[in-house]
């Protein structure tokens, strides 16, 4: 009997060996160079029922974000600050590795904490801008992210979708009467949110001692370490998140920072284009 193994079979059985054939040639199985991110598609305003929304695709990884706005009473300690409630969902349908509720909760909370830290601690959004009336009414934004397909690097997709959706938010004009009841002004203008800066992420992984940009889920699984760098359009570092894995040296870090920095402008342009196309 003749023993034959097609490329697909080797890929399933010996994924690392399969990759080791490609990487020294400077190319990846999906046809990309090692330092080339996947095609990024950003579209805004795809959900009509939400105040702001966005769909972001990085290759086949896709995240959708919807923002709903409601009126609430502010906290006593911060009477002028609106609120932002973030939730990230990784439903079981997005990846074969998320079968159990606990897997999904672990990844959800990690993504939520990371995105929330970037949005609030680097002051992307002025929460004071969400104030309707001092200490009686503020907007609360419910930001919900769904990962529809998880093919690696879902943090980047999630953060980009949140940012695009935030720039896309249209809050209706409201008025407050003497009895502190808030009502929407019929035919009033809409108010959009100003972002102070745009934190743009890029993720990397190290596989077989080679640096790969924007890894797919297959590459993430085989890699010895993954990390994400976030720079804003002003060139400030918003986050450098490397939870663990194999140690890296400073040269690689510098190289990755530069790659991220070079990409910010392009992505901000894509975001603005997406918003203009909606108008």
């Amino acid at each position: 009997m003749k023993l034959e193994a097609s490329a697909d079979v080797i890929r399933k059985l010996h994924p690392l060996e399969f990759y080791k054939r490609f990487l020294p040639e400077g190319i990846r199985p999906d046809g990309r160079n090692l330092n080339k991110p996947r095609v990024t598609v950003i579209s805004a305003g795809s959900l009509t029922t939400a105040e702001g929304s966005a769909l972001v695709k990085l290759g086949s990884t896709s995240a959708i974000c919807g923002i709903k706005a409601e009126v609430t009473i502010p906290a006593d300690t911060e009477p002028q600050c609106g609120k932002l409630v973030l939730s990230v969902e990784l439903p079981p349908l997005c990846s074969p590795n998320i079968q159990r509720w606990t897997d999904s909760v672990e990844q959800n909370s990690s993504l939520e904490v990371q995105i929330e830290d970037i949005l609030l601690k680097t002051n992307v959004l002025n929460l004071e801008a969400l104030c309707i009336k001092d200490s009686s009414a503020v907007w609360v934004l419910y930001v919900d992210v769904y990962i529809l397909e998880h093919d690696g690097n879902c943090f980047d997709a999630a953060l980009l979708s949140v940012l695009t959706a935030l720039t896309n938010v249209k809050l209706p004009e409201v008025e407050v009467n003497e009895e502190q009841i808030v009502s929407i002004v019929e035919g009033g203008s809409t108010q959009s949110l100003e972002l102070n800066h745009y934190p743009i992420p890029l993720s990397f992984c190290i596989l077989d001692d080679k640096l790969l940009v924007d890894p797919t889920s297959e590459e993430e699984e085989l890699s010895s370490t993954c990390f994400t760098i976030v720079y804003n359009n002003r060139g400030e570092l918003c986050s450098l998140y490397k939870p663990g894995g194999k140690h890296i040296n400073d040269d690689i870090l510098e190289e990755c920072k530069q790659t991220t920095l070079n990409r910010t402008e392009h992505i901000v342009k894509l975001m603005k284009q997406a918003n203009e196309a909606k108008k």
């Binding site: 601690k121 400030e236 450098l240 040296n249």
Partner: peptide, 27 residues
């Protein structure tokens, strides 16, 4: 990574988590 840092005095970065806005030189 203690061994790497002890041997070479550089590199050896295993984890890095940051929050807030940092300049490159601050980092």
């Amino acid at each position: 990574d203690g061994h790497v840092v002890a041997k070479t005095g550089e590199g050896g970065l295993v984890s890095s988590v940051t929050s807030g806005l940092l300049t490159d030189s601050a980092y």
